[in-house]
Design a protein around this nucleic acid. Structure first.
Lengths: 182, 182
DNA sequence: AATACGATGTAGCAATCGCTACAAGAGGAA
DNA sequence: TTCCTCTTGTAGCGATTGCTACATCGTATT
């Protein structure tokens, strides 16, 4: 069988899949290389060192996340903010997005610690999510930009509470917000 | 100099300080032991293995967090939800709490991954924060329980956006919520 | 005094970490 | 051909990982 040239573009999606399943914290060169069908030797050869590799990998994952969001853009807009929030929540429950979420908190933790590459990826993912949300806002919304930011904040808080086992707290909080009053 | 008996109770605060500064991800036995003035040998002796150590350490940290919250309880209550939110935000800007925040996202990430001990600590910290918030709600609030959960959700979303460099997004979101309308 | 037991130091083990030195092959350029 | 550069495999380095075997103290009990 002939050997395809293994470049960064070939390796990144395979490593991204590995990281999505096993996390970033324990992503060391040899397992990553095995998942990508190469050796640690070649990863260093292609990316220079691990830090640069992780940086490129996070960048790539942020890109994948963006396109996943764009593909999830329905052509019918919700008519109220409540409906809009519900739609994001539904979308966040998709298994594809759930796998992103587990990785997401690791990225946030890395960004908080200042690990190089993490903050950039986190910012891009939030920026993309915000743009997606603005495009989903009701047409007659009096303040789509602010509303999208409001929904985003509530959404992220809800997601966090959900992942630490306080989903009920979040849903009860939602009931007490104006997002539950038409 | 005489040698104090080094028990778990003596070791935990020293290790907690180390973890608060250097993070959980790279908290290995030998640095932890050095920070606590012992050897890795003794940490295993006292706690059995690393997993149990981390579990107890997180439990201890959650306790410290709780008492820190209780000490931050002012005796005058805010009169509006907006004021209440502002007070939590101020408190979150304290340097003591900032150091907790960096660790917090690591705990959330661990909880999302299902690492033993993380979810329990995260749940307790949220529960305590929720109780603290309920005690801080305005006296005449029509729904203190729901309101506290609402504020908590917004707060956590705001904090997250802040740590990934989207503080402005969060503050603009706050302006578009009913927390900015009297 | 003899014994038992808890506490601790020393040394080390197998595994894994990121990374590198060296050589070998392949393919194009001269 | 002869060279040169790009790509890859093999082997290994020193450091660190969690953890353990063994010996040695001091103290308490018998």
């Amino acid at each position: 069988m002939q050997k395809a040239p293994l470049s960064r573009e070939t390796l990144l999606p395979l490593m991204a899949a590995h990281v999505l399943e096993h996390g970033l914290g324990r992503a060391s060169l040899r397992p990553l290389a095995k998942a990508a069908g190469t050796s640690d030797r070649m990863l260093i050869y292609h990316f220079g060192n691990k830090e640069a590799l992780i940086r490129e990998l996070l960048e790539y994952i942020a890109g994948v996340y963006s396109t996943a969001l764009e593909m999830a853009l329905g052509d019918d807009r919700p008519t109220t903010r409540q409906q809009c929030f519900a739609r994001i929540a539904d979308q966040g429950r998709q298994p594809t997005m759930r796998r992103f979420m587990v990785l997401w908190w690791e990225i946030v933790a890395g960004a908080a610690r200042g690990i190089p590459g993490y903050s950039e990826a986190a910012q891009e993912m939030i920026t993309k999510q915000l743009a997606w949300l603005e495009a989903q806002m009701p047409e007659d919304d009096p303040d789509p930009a602010g509303g999208a930011r409001y929904l985003l904040t509530m959404m992220e808080g809800t997601l966090m509470l959900g992942t630490v086992g306080h989903a009920r707290t979040a849903s009860e909080g939602l009931l007490a917000s104006d997002l539950s009053r038409p």
